[in-house]
Amino acid sequence: MLPRLPWPLVHVREAYGRKLVELGRRFPDLWVLDADLSTSTKTAFFGREFPERFVNVGLQEQTMVNLAAGLALQGLRVVVSSFSVFLALRPLEMVRQSIAYPRLNVKIVATHGGVSVGPDGASHQVIEDVGIMTSIPNMEVYVPCDAPEVEAVVEHLVAEREGPAYVRLSRERIPVVHDEVDFRPGRGEVLRDGSDVAIISNGFMTPLALLAAERLSRMGIDAAVVNMTSVKPLDGDLVERMARETGFIVTAEEHNIYNGLGSRVAELLAERYPTPVRRVGVRDTFGESGLAWELLDNYGLSEFSIVHAVREGLRLRG
């Protein structure tokens, strides 16, 4: 069920669509491609404003990715959008061969990530994308947590970064937790200090991590919250520092517990500063139809799952 949130809810997709239009005005070499989902991904805003630099390929995600490569090779900045399941999985080999390997300036902005896609069910609820994209050399991976951060990430990727990147957005309206955004690639953001545990989260789970930290503080547990939008490059120094300061890490993400943020944090700590880690995420199972908040609760992606993971971990440590 929808928790009571102290923040306004905003559609990140619309923020993304408007941001693209603004970038389109500033960068005449920006082209945007979509595969028949432009009214959902909101790239249609760009298409209406700049039809000569917009291509709706129809239902051809694999061709779209290669088409983007051909365009990028002519010196253009290219953004491709669709639902994350149709970008991270369906044309995966094209992404690897034609975008990542030649390191082309193509940004993959995928909407409808995670189980919170809701009623469409398992076919549309991708929980593998972050792991898959992270595994590809040259590919950067970002999971922004709210609309202002989506704008900052897209701004950075289009205006500054030359090379491939994958960004995952949500379908739902999600809480705006930022007053001011300080996004930098490869940098995590400490939203709340704490000494007993550090909760490292991204995307939809960051507001829930903040709620969990608040609830934990009422139980006498002092939890830090780190928003880790940048999954790759990961802010290893910050992860290590939080581990040293608190001695216990909980990760929270709207992704399979395998190969996502939690895996990356655990791997990094295993090598640099072995520390107990608990992962909050989908426990290696497919989703189903339901309302977004119902599904998040059902798959253990709630404020209470984070609270539980923290308390269990602290109890075991004694």
Partner: peptide
């Protein structure tokens, strides 16, 4: 002009050009 080797991709990239 383009890295190829996985069949079909080069054709699509050429169409982009």
């Amino acid at each position: 002009e383009m890295c190829t080797g996985s069949l079909g991709h080069g054709f699509a990239a050429a169409a982009g050009m």
